[in-house]
Computed example of a mutant assay.
Amino acid sequence: MKASEIREKTQVELEKELNDLKSELFKLRFQLATNQLENPMKLRDVKKSIARIKTIMRENELKGKVK
C-alpha cells in the first residue's frame, strides 16, 4: 500500500488497517517459527506497511488533522 493511498483514509480506517496488519504479522511470525512460511518477504512488506500507517497517523496527529 502506498503512502498516498494511506493518507486518503480516515483515522478510524487507519486504526482498523493497523490492527489487521498486526494480526497478519502475528500469523506470519507463527508460520515462520513452524517452518510453514512460503514467502519470507511477506514479513518485510507487512512490517513496512505497519510503519507507514503509524508514520502517517503521527503526521495527522501533529497537524491536528485527526478525522
Rank of each mutant, 00 (worst) to 15 (best):
E61D: 07
R7S: 05
E59H: 02
E24F: 13
E24I: 15
I56E: 00
T55K: 06
R52I: 09
K47P: 06
I56K: 00
Q36A: 15
F30N: 13
Q11N: 07
E24Q: 13
R52L: 07
Q31W: 12
R44P: 04
Q11V: 04
M57P: 06
K63N: 02
L43K: 05
E8D: 06
L14V: 02
T10N: 03
L18H: 05
E61C: 05
A33V: 11
A3S: 10
I56R: 00
E17Q: 12
G64R: 02
F26Q: 13
K47N: 11
E38N: 08
S23C: 05
K48P: 07
E59V: 03
E13T: 14
T34H: 14
I50Q: 01
M57R: 05
K54R: 05
A51K: 09
R58F: 08
K47I: 12
E24H: 12
I53Y: 00
K16R: 13
D45K: 04
F26A: 14
A51T: 14
M1G: 13
L32Q: 15
S4V: 10
D20R: 06
F30H: 13
Q36P: 15
T55E: 07
L18A: 07
N39Y: 13
V46R: 01
E15I: 14
G64L: 04
E15V: 15
N35S: 02
K42D: 14
V46K: 01
L62Y: 01
S49E: 08
Q31A: 15
F26G: 15
K16S: 11
G64Y: 03
M41F: 14
K63F: 01
A51N: 08
V66E: 00
K27M: 09
L18G: 09
I56C: 00
P40C: 04
R7D: 03
S4Y: 07
L21K: 11
V66R: 00
E24C: 11
L28A: 00
L62M: 03
F26K: 13
A3P: 05
M1R: 10
R52D: 05
D45V: 05
E38G: 05
E17T: 12
K9N: 07
E59S: 04
T34G: 11
K22I: 09
Q31C: 12
S49D: 10
K63H: 01
F26W: 12
K63T: 02
A51M: 10
R29T: 11
T55S: 12
Q31E: 15
L37C: 12
L25E: 06
E13V: 14
G64D: 03
R58S: 09
